[in-house]
């Protein structure tokens, strides 16, 4: 069940870009009398007593509709929203704390904090006048690995959106899952730590592809690691030729002014912003 179906004719150019049904190759003998060769379209009688119903609906359609509603609320309030993603331990929370320290007297900032079970990260962000809404994702199967649009929507009543210029969503630390879920953000930034290895863009292309900006964090550790910065940039460019990159250290402060400038720039571009 749930086999990884592939066409075995090596004809990858055939039929994948459009919507006709692939009538061949799905049965592999498990449906007696069900072999209809290259019948296209109507599969009535595909299996006795079975009716084939065309759906053609996006799997994350519902999430995307909620994301659009979030985006409309953000635009109506004149607030810019940045979705901040990374693997666990890349330094998102430290970076956010240093960001708030630098920007809190210039911008009114809100934080949506995704954390599986705790408020530990949110606790580290206290004290800079930011409005913080915590979204614990620990229900269901032991904790979601990402924030989706409905989770972000649930946090919105706890933020004074109309009084804010910028909301940063600290997503759950994970290089795979958050990339697939739009939440209504205006821009996506990711924190990559050079302790993670230069091959990461090739292993997690979905995440790296969707980032508008990549922060190359913990750059102060470069002299102590075998990290090949040139190879990392080559790998990043292979999956995402357009991303802006900034080398930063949330610990020493290197590059943080450039990061804050970028945030200020995207905040100024927000539709509906004053």
């Amino acid at each position: 069940m749930g086999r990884f179906h592939r066409h075995d004719d090596n004809d990858h150019g055939h039929g994948h870009g459009h919507d006709h049904e692939h009538g061949h190759g799905h049965d592999h003998g498990n449906a007696p009398g069900g072999r209809f060769g290259d019948v296209i379209g109507d599969h009535s009688g595909y299996e006795t007593g079975t009716e084939r119903v065309t759906v053609l609906e996006r799997i994350f359609g519902e999430n995307e509709r909620t994301a659009e509603a979030n985006r409309a609320d953000f635009d109506a309030a004149g607030v810019t929203v940045v979705n901040l993603m990374s693997s666990p331990g890349a330094g998102k929370t430290t970076l956010l704390r240093e960001t708030l320290r630098r920007l809190h007297d210039r911008h009114r900032i809100g934080i949506i904090e995704g954390d599986i079970e705790t408020s530990l990260d949110a606790d580290r962000l206290e004290g800079f006048g930011a409005a913080i809404a915590l979204v614990n994702t620990g229900d269901g199967f032991g904790g979601e690995c990402h924030l989706d649009a409905p989770m972000v929507r649930s946090a919105l009543p706890r933020l004074p959106l109309k009084e804010l210029d910028l909301v940063i969503i600290e997503n759950v630390g994970n290089l795979v899952c958050p990339a697939e879920f739009v939440v209504g953000e205006h821009a996506r930034a990711m924190v990559f730590s050079i302790t993670e290895g230069e091959e990461k863009p090739l292993k997690y292309p979905v995440m790296f592809r969707t980032a508008d900006l990549v922060l190359v964090n913990k750059i102060d550790l470069l002299p102590y690691l075998d990290f090949d910065l040139g190879a990392f940039y080559a790998n990043l460019r292979a999956v995402n030729p357009k991303a802006i990159t900034l080398e930063v250290s949330a610990k020493t402060g290197q590059g943080l002014d450039a990061w804050c400038s970028w945030l200020t720039t995207v905040t100024g571009r927000s539709p509906g912003a004053v």
């Binding site: 299996e47 079975t50 119903v53 065309t54 759906v55 994350f60």
Partner: peptide, 21 residues
């Protein structure tokens, strides 16, 4: 070159169902 457009590979669809009568 890196100026490429994606022709296929981003599909994420439920295409059809087989329902019992």
């Amino acid at each position: 070159g890196t100026r490429v457009s994606i022709l296929a590979g981003e599909e994420f669809l439920i295409t059809s169902l087989e329902l019992a009568e």
